[in-house]
Nucleic acid binder design. Structure first.
Lengths: 182, 182
DNA sequence: ATTGCCTATGCAACTCGTTGCATAGCAGGA
DNA sequence: TCCTGCTATGCAACGAGTTGCATAGGCAAT
């Protein structure tokens, strides 16, 4: 289970409430590990019971109180131990790829608009990543260890999106060729 | 839920038993949708109850009997309907990426051998994909619709592995630089 | 002879993850 | 004014997915 570890990393980078964590997962972390707010709240309670994180009630005016969590000693130790254990290679759940193979048993043209929609989503995400890179890493010559590691993960996201865009163009060309042949 | 649909596609391409499907998921399909044999057996039973697939007992000598499943009419219809519904973008569960960010709070050098191990795995997979491409698509000028769609999905896998290899080299260079700086 | 692996299917128990709903105050627009 | 949406947390129920184990014959190597 890596959700605990992803939460720990996020809390070490910056303490926050369950709600704030959920938004971080929606934004940056979500490309590598997704989680809904339900999962996050449940895991946070378990982690607190295990002493991995500590929480503090923070009253706010104009909005509900929040419980701000931060990583505790045992959590850091657990993270260090996990770092030294091997992990499985990443898994991908790619429904669109299943659909493309399925299109062989139906009309390939029916998939074109769907693939175009996915292409737009990936293009928007790439733009957001590139914008974030400009903002957070304007000068790559003088970065600390922390920033260098964040940056190399971001570069992974950027390259993934570029690759995916090029592939979706390949898919679209194939589907259009097949549609024209009929 | 796309497991049903992935199974249907696989059975349309070639009928087979639960055990055979599990091996196909381990090999080719597994890069886009993973499933254990447990899940496959369970879903096959449900699909048969729903009339999506039909099965036939096949006695074998020297090994246990098997139940060979094939896609039935209602299954094909369900697949055609699913093709016209939008699906979510793919999700990635990338523990290694979480680890790389976690390394900022520990010793980055501790990750080097792990990343090298992952690199080897991806290099082996790329080699297998390229070998499969040579074997299954030696002449790309005269492919049917079916083969063109299979090929474009395979090209996606190939490009994914190439991209990942390049990124892992980038990660290794970063980790080694950080280790040398200490 | 025993051990381990492959084919083939399945049960039981568990954890992971999603979906729908509820509460509750405040802000902003039609 | 009403409706929508944001912040903030949580319960309950369900479905997806994993892990451990069981059966059972055949094959190959030690």
């Amino acid at each position: 289970m890596a959700l605990e570890h992803a939460i720990l990393v996020s809390l070490l980078e910056q303490p926050g409430s369950g709600y704030e964590l959920a938004r971080r997962f929606d934004r940056s972390i979500g490309r590598f590990w997704t989680a809904t707010h339900q999962q996050i709240y449940r895991v946070l309670r378990r982690m607190e019971a295990d002493g991995w994180v500590a929480s503090q009630e923070v009253p706010q005016d104009g909005r509900p109180d929040k419980k701000v969590y931060s990583a505790a000693g045992p959590g850091r130790a657990a993270l260090a131990g996990w770092l030294r254990e091997p992990v499985e290679p990443e898994t991908v759940r790619h429904e669109l790829a299943v659909k493309i193979r399925a299109a062989a048993f139906d009309d390939p043209a029916a998939l074109i608009s769907e693939v175009e929609r996915h292409r737009e989503g990936h293009a928007a995400l790439l733009a957001r990543y590139l914008h974030g890179e400009q903002r957070d890493f304007p000068d790559t010559t003088a970065l600390g260890a922390h920033e260098q590691l964040q940056h190399v993960v971001l570069r992974g996201g950027i390259e993934y999106e570029r690759m995916t865009l090029a592939w979706l163009d390949d898919v679209l060309a194939t589907l259009r060729r097949l549609a024209a042949d009929r």
